[in-house]
Simulated scan of single mutants.
Amino acid sequence: MAKIIIKDIGKRYANGFEALKGVSAEIAAGSFTVILGPSGAGKSTLLRTINGLETATAGTIQIGEQVVTQNNLREVRSQVGMVFQHFNLVDRLSVMTNVLTGRLSHRSWLGSLLYLFRRTDLDLAHDALIRVGLTDKAWNRADKLSGGQQQRVGIARALAQQPRVILADEPVASLDPVASEEIMGLLREICTRDGITVVVNLHQVELAKRFADRIIGLNDGLVVYDGPASGLDSATLSRIYSRNGDQVDEQLETMLAYA
């Protein structure tokens, strides 16, 4: 497990758009944190700065004792598993091979290039597939699976890294309610059982309330709420989901009040 310290993170893109405006937070080791906010609030940008997929233009990210820099990205990413909205699997490869790609950061450059894996890698991949309930699909092509099953492969790939942190960027956005529930339950179980620090970007308020230890609400690149899920009352949700300083419309506010 690892603590994450986010200190005054800013991100301005080349076109001048400021996605993050001095975001700070400390995420406890072994905790389950959900980041909520409307589209364009900066949720994905923040998650991607944590493992160096985006380079912050201001501030620092620290994972455990290590500050993330351009010089240590390979080492950082070996400790941080990533779960993506659209799965990011190689469709033509088997489920097992996709899970094994989680071990590439632990192999040499040549071994990574040639997909050379050791017996220990195979054992870790097999154990990860057991955790997500897909051992019977190990040698199926990834594109033959349902969306929920493909996301389970993505989680198994992250587990195969033996990470200290798992970041999940909208992991249930393209899934039906039943699969969404299963994926969130699986991530919560991994956090609780393995002590892995889990940070999830979500739009689904009801899932955030049920699964998160803590909620960070982002709006327009700023933290507008940081606290327990129990604090997500109508006023707080209105603040998180307002646009350009205006209150959310009556229909959305009603929905949020009953989420």
Rank of each mutant, 00 (worst) to 15 (best):
G64F: 01
H126F: 04
W109G: 03
S108I: 00
R118L: 06
R74A: 09
D194F: 11
D169S: 08
I50M: 12
L145E: 12
G245V: 11
I215C: 11
N98V: 03
K11P: 00
V248P: 14
D143V: 09
E189P: 04
R131T: 13
I5K: 04
I190D: 08
K144Y: 04
V132R: 03
A128C: 10
Q161W: 10
I4K: 05
A128D: 05
L53D: 08
A156D: 07
A41S: 15
G147E: 01
A56G: 14
G111L: 02
E181Q: 12
K209Q: 14
A28P: 05
D249T: 00
A125I: 11
V248S: 01
L124P: 02
R157Y: 09
A208P: 15
L89Q: 04
T60A: 12
N15R: 10
S24E: 06
I216V: 10
G231L: 11
L232G: 13
Y115Q: 10
G221F: 14
H126T: 15
T60K: 15
L100C: 02
D194R: 15
L175P: 01
N88H: 10
L46K: 00
L53Q: 15
L20H: 02
V224T: 05
L134E: 10
G231N: 10
L104Y: 01
M82S: 11
L252N: 00
L104N: 08
S105I: 09
E253Q: 09
D176V: 06
L110V: 13
Q204K: 12
